[in-house]
């Protein structure tokens, strides 16, 4: 039984900003479907009264003092970027708003 449709792969690829060509969607859907079919076995485990674990360590309240430290020099911060002008990082124009 397949659960992942090419349309869902298209939507997920868009959320992840990865270009997946239309003609590859069915193949990718089938691969994800295989894995998800396996992974879905998990849903049979009763967990109604189980708390989720997102941290295995019982650590809490880890903070740092509000002490400024010297930042990276701007030229060093910006030099890492594939494209820059002056001390600004340059990207192709943002066409979409937000």
């Amino acid at each position: 039984m397949s659960v992942v449709t090419p349309a869902e792969v298209r939507a997920v690829a868009w959320l992840a900003r990865i270009d997946v060509p239309e003609d590859r969607l069915p193949q990718v859907a089938a691969q994800l479907d295989d894995i998800l079919a396996y992974v879905r076995k998990l849903q049979a485990i009763p967990t109604q009264s189980v708390e989720p674990t997102s941290h295995v360590l019982p650590l809490s309240n880890v903070t740092r003092a509000d002490q400024p430290v010297p930042p990276l020099p701007a030229e060093q911060a910006v030099r890492l970027a594939p494209d820059q002008r002056g001390h600004l990082v340059r990207v192709p124009k943002v066409v979409d708003v937000g």
Binding site: R17, D19, V20, P92, K93, V94, V95, D96
Partner: peptide, 12 residues
């Protein structure tokens, strides 16, 4: 044009 194809192709 613009940013989106840069994102989509860089990551693809």
């Amino acid at each position: 044009r613009g940013l989106l194809p840069m994102y989509l192709q860089t990551r693809a």
